[in-house]
Simulated assay, not measured.
Amino acid sequence: MILGIDASNLRQGGGVTHIVEILKEARPQNYGFSKVCIWSNQKTLERITNRDWLEKIYQPVLDQSLIKRQIWQKTTLPRQLKEYNCDILYVPGGSDGSGFQPMVTMCRNMLPFEWKELLRYKLSWMSLKLLLVRISQLRSFRQAYGLIFLTDYARKSLIPIIALENLNEKVIPHGIDDRFFIKPRTSYNIERYTPENPFKILYVSIIDVYKHQVNVVKAVKSLIAKGYPIQLQLVGPAYKPELKRLRRELISGDQKIQYLGAIDYNQLHAIYKDSHLNVFASSCENMPNILLEGMASGLPIACSNFGPMPEILGDAGIYFHPEKVEEIQKSIEILILDLNLRERLSHSSYEKAKQYSWKKTADQTFKFLQSVGNHYYERRILNSNS
């Protein structure tokens, strides 16, 4: 079989990381695929490793506006899939307009499907965008011959909404880049740290309404007021309205609470290595890659108890309600004060992270694509003979 991949709407973040990593680790010949053809924008294609069995197809329209890309997906892609003799289409971005079958897609984003989270944006362009994504992706999920979920939480949440019987579906979690695996370091009592050499708390994620950085800042401010020698570093790009809220909580020139902005993904592991505790306060996730990275980095973790976080972290962290500042404060304080707990949770989360690898993700993905393709064409043969 020949596999076509429509990565036309993968432009940054976890979606690009996913497709880059699984194609780097893939052995498609082991699953009946002689060739893989992928369509995407130039920047994404440049990040994908060249392979003998892989054909990267670039068209200038894929670097243009969303509307133009959607028109291309609906009008040009179906013809090109036939020209390249593709037998099955994989759309990891979640929205397909090609009408090609068999098509397999992926549920990547829970924001459009959790009303409470969507409504955090109130009446805004973002809420309208998420509503349109919801409509588009639900249509694609219902038309798909196969659907990949990243967590069991996402699967259980979406199956009732999709409302289809006999759906070919599979839970295939993402992996972790090897460079994030850092063995847990020696921990020290909080008295060992000073304002000049503080205990560093790290929160990596986009500054956004459902990530609750403002609540984390308020919690850490309270702990600083109690005299703890701690420092909070916030890392990530920003949704501008929420960044304005955050900046109102920050004090100019204060080194105890810092917003470092976006850091190159290839350098991110160094930030984890230089930290002592990881916080993850999101209330809406599908597959929390950032949580996985913190686990692999050998850090004790104070974590939101929403969504799939308990599924991923298990008993290897301290949990809090991300909307309750006092719970965030208490969780961080427990870890600051209890050296033995920090050490135990660091080793436990590090071991749990070893369950996730991009090789495993690639193997499971291509095995599922093979299964869906075989099932589709076997049914076609049976139907034609009946």
Score class of each variant (00 low, 15 high):
residue 376 Y to W: 15
residue 339 L to W: 02
residue 8 S to L: 07
residue 319 Y to H: 15
residue 232 L to Q: 01
residue 284 C to N: 10
residue 164 L to T: 06
residue 21 E to A: 12
residue 180 F to L: 04
residue 215 N to Y: 08
residue 70 Q to W: 12
residue 88 I to K: 02
residue 341 L to Y: 04
residue 374 N to F: 15
residue 14 G to V: 08
residue 349 S to V: 06
residue 275 S to N: 13
residue 215 N to A: 14
residue 277 L to T: 01
residue 54 L to N: 08
residue 220 V to F: 00
residue 150 L to R: 05
residue 305 N to M: 14
residue 193 Y to M: 01
residue 248 R to Q: 11
residue 36 V to R: 09
residue 99 G to P: 04
residue 96 D to E: 08
residue 273 K to T: 00
residue 102 P to C: 13
residue 41 N to S: 10
residue 245 R to L: 09
residue 103 M to W: 06
residue 353 A to P: 11
residue 227 G to S: 08
residue 229 P to W: 01
residue 107 C to E: 12
residue 245 R to D: 11
residue 374 N to M: 10
residue 134 R to V: 00
residue 144 A to Y: 07
residue 279 V to Y: 02
residue 279 V to G: 04
residue 103 M to H: 09
residue 361 T to L: 14
residue 307 G to E: 08
residue 177 D to R: 14
residue 215 N to E: 14
residue 53 W to Q: 15
residue 48 I to D: 03
residue 205 S to E: 03
residue 342 R to D: 05
residue 193 Y to E: 00
residue 265 Y to M: 05
residue 248 R to N: 13
residue 94 G to T: 09
residue 296 A to W: 09
residue 132 L to S: 12
residue 10 L to D: 08
residue 224 I to M: 00
residue 248 R to V: 02
residue 379 R to M: 11
residue 321 H to T: 09
residue 30 N to S: 14
residue 349 S to Y: 13
residue 202 L to T: 02
residue 318 I to W: 13
residue 93 G to P: 06
residue 90 Y to W: 15
residue 63 D to Y: 07
residue 65 S to Y: 08
residue 386 S to F: 13
residue 101 Q to T: 07
residue 108 R to A: 06
residue 216 V to H: 08
residue 115 W to P: 05
residue 334 I to T: 04
residue 335 L to N: 02
residue 371 S to A: 09
residue 97 G to D: 05
residue 87 D to T: 13
residue 295 M to L: 10
residue 29 Q to E: 14
residue 215 N to V: 01
residue 251 I to D: 09
residue 300 P to V: 00
residue 281 A to K: 06
residue 26 A to C: 04
residue 267 Q to P: 00
residue 374 N to Q: 15
residue 151 T to I: 04
residue 323 E to F: 13
residue 279 V to D: 05
residue 89 L to Q: 12
residue 249 E to M: 12
residue 294 G to L: 10
residue 223 L to I: 00
residue 330 K to C: 05
residue 176 I to Y: 07
residue 378 E to M: 07
residue 29 Q to T: 02
residue 383 N to F: 13
residue 148 I to H: 15
residue 109 N to Y: 15
residue 177 D to V: 01
residue 178 D to V: 07
residue 143 Q to L: 12
residue 315 D to S: 15
residue 35 K to V: 08
residue 307 G to Q: 08
residue 302 A to D: 03
residue 228 Y to M: 01
residue 110 M to Q: 12
residue 74 K to T: 15
residue 217 V to T: 00
residue 54 L to H: 08
residue 65 S to F: 15
residue 349 S to N: 11
residue 91 V to R: 12
residue 229 P to I: 00
residue 87 D to F: 02
residue 24 K to G: 03
residue 202 L to D: 06
residue 116 K to F: 03
residue 151 T to S: 14
residue 362 A to P: 04
residue 191 E to G: 07
residue 35 K to G: 03
residue 34 S to Y: 08
residue 79 R to D: 12
residue 46 E to H: 10
residue 336 I to L: 15
residue 163 A to V: 00
residue 143 Q to P: 03
residue 111 L to M: 15
residue 379 R to F: 09
residue 293 E to C: 07
residue 288 P to S: 07
residue 257 I to D: 05
residue 158 L to Q: 02
residue 380 R to P: 04
residue 49 T to G: 05
residue 210 Y to R: 07
residue 318 I to Y: 03
residue 378 E to A: 13
residue 178 D to E: 14
residue 8 S to Q: 13
residue 41 N to Y: 06
residue 62 L to W: 12
residue 29 Q to Y: 03
residue 332 I to M: 00
residue 138 L to V: 07
residue 288 P to I: 03
residue 59 Q to P: 01
